[in-house]
Amino acid sequence: MKIKNLIIFGTRPEAIKMAPLVKEFQKNTNHFETRVCVTAQHREMLDQVLHFFKITPDYDLDLMKANQNLYSLTADIISGLKSILEDFKPDYVYVHGDTTTTMAASIGAFYSGAKICHVEAGLRTHNKRSPFPEEINRQVTGRIADFHFAPTTASKNNLLAENINPNSILVTGNTVIDALLASVSIVDNVDNEEIDYLKTIIDSSKKIILVTGHRRENHGQGFNNICEALKEIAEQHLNVQVIYPVHLNPNVKEPVYEILSNISNVNLINPLTYPAFVWLMKQSYLIITDSGGVQEEAPSLGKPVLVMRDTTERPEAVDAGTVILVGTNKERIVSETNNLLINIGHYKYMSALHNPYGDGKACQRIVEFIRTN
């Protein structure tokens, strides 16, 4: 009898990181019946990733709504999954990372009696307010999960410190590297209007600084500081071009456009689809971000990363030297950027460091573990 898998995700980052796992399970149809459920916690950005990876969900809760809040979203996910879990009766449910979809789906799967597999398990800041609500989402999921697919040894050690059974933990590397390495070879040849547009605005004579920022804990003064830092960097270095795909959240968009919209070597653009973003990462000199996924991806492309957060649940990258935490401190962002722009030896050293997040074979390890357990 085939093992029945249900893979659940709801946001663009989850979709990117779960897509290679979906594909790997779908190669193994002799052993597995695999179905995909999306909550559509994000809608448009999620659909772009599904299209790129050629994944058609078997179930779509289509939950995204205007002015969505954590209370209603959590309740809607749990209740929306009930009929799916009762109909399909999966043996294993796979959730990823730290989103509200992750936490709520793990609760629903627990109620159904399925075994819960947590992909990208064990990341911790040990500060329940940072990142919010992601840290608690991870910890709740970690208490519920039956199997923990940890990206690094440090993540495994976090789980062991919480008395998780060591036999339930597998260090896999991060599936985002699987997705990235599969995508890099595609994006140079894909027919993509956004990539065509980016080619028209990029000045090849300049060093490209790619910026992304959206995290809730940076809203307010944090984003004002970030934007003031970027303004100073752009004005100090005319040989630099800042390209910033701006998140649509008004708490992000308003300060970004107010402070940065009239600077000649700053390009504020709409959010990018995954293939266009991968292409732009490849063209960049360095990346300034508050994104967790970018911290993992960029080192595989040899791109130094400055992380605009005070804490990170990905300390391996800090320890390895592939990223530097700068928070939302204007002076720190400017000084660390200046160092990478001016000190070529420092830049070359940082860009050549080994990525601690994996070799692109995480999904193979997960499939083999489930097949043999």
Rank of each mutant, 00 (worst) to 15 (best):
S284W: 14
F369P: 02
D87A: 05
S335P: 01
R12V: 08
L170K: 15
I208R: 10
F32H: 07
F110I: 03
I233Y: 04
E368R: 13
V240N: 11
K17S: 15
T322M: 06
E296Y: 00
L160K: 12
S204Q: 15
H247S: 04
K4I: 03
P245G: 05
K361N: 14
V334E: 05
R129C: 05
A15R: 05
V318W: 00
W279K: 01
Q236V: 03
I16K: 02
G220L: 08
V190E: 12
S300F: 04
G142Y: 10
A234H: 01
N28W: 09
F147N: 04
V240F: 05
S130H: 14
G327R: 13
L6D: 08
G220N: 01
K54M: 01
I169L: 09
A109V: 09
I164D: 13
Q283E: 15
A229N: 04
T328I: 04
V240H: 09
V307R: 09
G321A: 03
E316P: 00
I7Q: 04
G213H: 13
T328A: 02
P166H: 06
L6M: 13
P275A: 02
I209E: 03
E313N: 02
E235R: 11
D62R: 13
S72F: 07
A121T: 03
N30F: 10
L238I: 11
I136G: 02
L61N: 02
I78N: 11
T11D: 08
C117N: 14
W279V: 06
I186C: 14
N270C: 06
F369E: 13
A320P: 07
T311A: 09
A317F: 11
S261C: 09
K82M: 07
E24C: 00
G321S: 06
I263V: 04
H96L: 14
R314Y: 10
N224M: 05
D87Q: 09
F223D: 13
L181S: 07
G292V: 02
V334R: 04
E336V: 06
M350A: 10
N355R: 12
L238E: 14
E135F: 00
G292M: 02
A40S: 15
K199D: 04
A66K: 10
L123P: 09
E258P: 00
K361I: 11
L341V: 06
N355F: 13
C227H: 04
A352D: 10
F132A: 10
L286C: 12
N267G: 01
